[in-house]
Amino acid sequence: MTAVRGFPAFPPQRAGARFATTWWGQAWIKALEDTSLDQTLLRKGRAYAKTGQVGPITVSPGRLAAITEHEYDTVVRVEQLTDAAWERFLDQVAAKAGHIAALLDRDVPHDLVEAAEDAAVPLLPTVGDLEPECSCPDWGHPCKHAAALCYQASWLLDGDPFVLLLLRGRGERELIDALQNRDLPPARSGAAPDAAPDAPAGGVPAAQAFALGEPPLPDPPPAETAFTPLALDPAPGVDVAALAVLAASAAGRAREILLRGRLEPLSEYQDRVRLAADHDLDLGLEPAVQAWRYGGAAGLDVLDTAWTPPRQDLARAQALLESGWDGEPPPHLETWRNRWTLGARQVRYGRDGRWYPFTEHDGHWWPSGPPERDPSTLLP
């Protein structure tokens, strides 16, 4: 039986309503707009979509259809995947349990789409993949009615990516049944070579695995777990000392994650500075190392970047500066963006809301201490 889904007409939307908010919905819009030969018709299509000029939408394999204003029959066709392409797609979905869970949670992982593309399975349309048809007299490609239908379809895709899969040829129930009946090979199911004798030879069906639910996580290890340096024997072509530093660095980062719950990702430059600061490495990054030791990534950003803080932040700092002199007028500062200078002393405002002290040496500014919220405590 051919899968068909019907959706009620969208009511008129507020003026500032957006169309696609998910990345796959935005890819659908991009395919439409890259295909269009007339920006005026696209603009009219957006207006029609927002003002409710499209009737109930019917989605079926390869076909998106609706009755638009003046009873025009409007259709947008999408090429369906072949049976062989579906088999390759199911291989990619079954290769990672998270893919199935994400789809059932109405999400489309980037890596699933990329893996499908590598297997020559185009899920998301690109320029020229959307074929509009309409009974109106407009020769546009697409006309404003087909454009409006496509824009509204992005709302359907945002809410349920299975709409896209149905357009490509198969509905949600059909896909889930195919995955439930699919035997996953041991390498994909995660079954060890010495699995229990009563385990199915081909692995565990996805539906059965998900029905087990999520087991409780073990208690976290103590945050103060001591790190034992690696004892490695020298080997040709292996820098044992560098490996020991990297292992200690990884252990330190893991400990921070245990304490804080998460860590912000670091750029390659930030990570080199962090390694030099944490392990006393001579990498020619002395000012950056000092900045890292005083303020981490925020301190390094203050060293390298000048930026313009919000006016209210600067006004608050000025008030703190004036109150720090007990009624006396504060010294005159040279101010430029986030940097306030008094002779050979300088304070720089960081994006973390703290002021960092610097001292001039041989024409260069060096970090000279930990940051403070009150800049008056850092100036003489």
Rank of each mutant, 00 (worst) to 15 (best):
A250D: 11
P185Y: 14
R337Q: 12
V75A: 06
C136N: 11
A148S: 12
Q26R: 15
P221E: 13
L258W: 03
D160V: 02
Y269W: 10
A47S: 14
G55A: 12
P220E: 11
A223D: 14
C134F: 02
A223G: 09
P236V: 07
Q152N: 15
Y151C: 05
L217W: 10
A101Y: 03
R253W: 05
R253S: 12
G52K: 13
E264A: 15
L258A: 14
D374W: 01
G128V: 02
P229G: 08
P329W: 00
V289Y: 02
V238E: 06
L378V: 01
P309N: 07
A85C: 05
P234H: 04
A242V: 03
P197N: 08
S154C: 06
I176D: 02
A196C: 07
L232F: 05
L314V: 15
D278V: 03
A195E: 09
H364T: 06
D73A: 14
R188I: 08
G261W: 07
A84F: 00
A147L: 03
G169L: 02
E79G: 15
G284A: 03
P371R: 07
K30T: 15
E79T: 15
R168P: 09
P132G: 13
H141C: 07
L232S: 06
D91K: 07
L320V: 02
P56F: 10
A65V: 14
G140Q: 11
H364I: 00
A101M: 01
L258S: 11
W366Y: 05
E33V: 15
I57L: 14
E131S: 05
L246F: 05
R337L: 04
L165I: 08
R345Q: 09
G128E: 04
P11C: 05
A247H: 06
A254N: 03
L263R: 13
V347G: 02
V93N: 04
A15Q: 13
P56D: 06
F89S: 09
W24A: 13
R5I: 07
A223M: 08
A306S: 12
W24M: 12
S376V: 00
D271Y: 03
L217A: 15
L300I: 04
A195G: 08
K96H: 12
A247T: 05
A196N: 10
K30H: 15
A231N: 12
L112A: 06
G203T: 11
A3Q: 12
G203K: 10
Q290N: 04
T68N: 12
E256C: 08
A231P: 04
A195K: 15
S154G: 08
R262H: 10
S376F: 00
A9T: 10
G350W: 01
Y349R: 07
A47K: 12
L283T: 01
E286R: 14
R272G: 02
A199I: 02
E117N: 12
E334S: 07
G299V: 07
L379N: 01
Y48I: 07
